[in-house]
Amino acid sequence: MNIIEAKNLVHEYIREDEEGNVEERLVALDHMDLHVKPGQFISVLGHNGSGKSTFAKHLNALLEPTSGSLWVNGMDVTKEENILPVRQSAGMVFQNPDNQIIASVVQEDVGFGPENIGVPTEEIWQRVEKSLKSVGMWEYREHSPNKLSGGQKQRVAIAGVMAMEPKCIVLDEPTAMLDPDGRKEVLAAVHQLNKEKGVTIILITHYMDEVVDSDYVYVMDQGKVVMDGTPRDIFSRVEELKEHRLDVPQITLLAYELKNAGLDLPDGVLTREELVSELCRLRDSNPNGSEVKDNKE
């Protein structure tokens, strides 16, 4: 069974004038299909305004579909009685680290979710400890969030979601406001949760290099899923990505350019190691070629 199942999902933002007449209709999600299996690491890519954040908010029942269906963990999100259970099973981490931490002490913030869903006091403390340890923030439990770095704040936010023991975590551009160190920290924490705790991850981002390690990638533009496939698959379609206002990691782009220049390279080279070994292969398959110089020979 899929943990997330979106079929023909449509969301329209409707602007009304004072008399309640429709002034403007903005289609943010346009018949979107997407599904996620438990334990997967999924990325949703798209430029700002492509509808990816609107989609994220549906997964958490913060927005209601205009039409179409969305099932999260076997629950129909449009049913009123499912709203809280859906929010509990699909936790959400937002972009701005400051605007999602509620309490003035780290551990109390992590306890906020469990408090809301009525977890007994003793168990709250156990969950807080477990979640803070799972993102490596246990030593900071007594700190004020104001004194933490951006990456640390995002890890606290992730712990706050983990404490509700969700099946999956939706991260809506969690690294957009962080520096390179913070980005690395957050991504490492998310990957670890996915591998060690088996939490399903839905990472929404516009940084291409962050999706390299995911199981499956969806690319959104104008509210539609315009591409989907494995990272390698997606990255081999450089021109298409550019059309959707995205760019590819430097290495992939370089490999693509080299291929266009006539080198016999495969599509969608993702890492440096790959490119080096491919170039070595080219050299070795053609050892007598006068163009290939090798200083070991």
Partner: peptide, 27 residues
């Protein structure tokens, strides 16, 4: 206002639903 808006969403996303049925971490 922007922060308040973000925060309200974040609280809702973490199942905040008013004081009813809430337990306390530090009763």
């Amino acid at each position: 206002f922007r922060r308040a808006n973000d925060l309200a969403l974040a609280m809702e996303a973490r199942c905040y639903n008013g004081g009813e049925g809430r337990t306390k971490m530090k009763p």
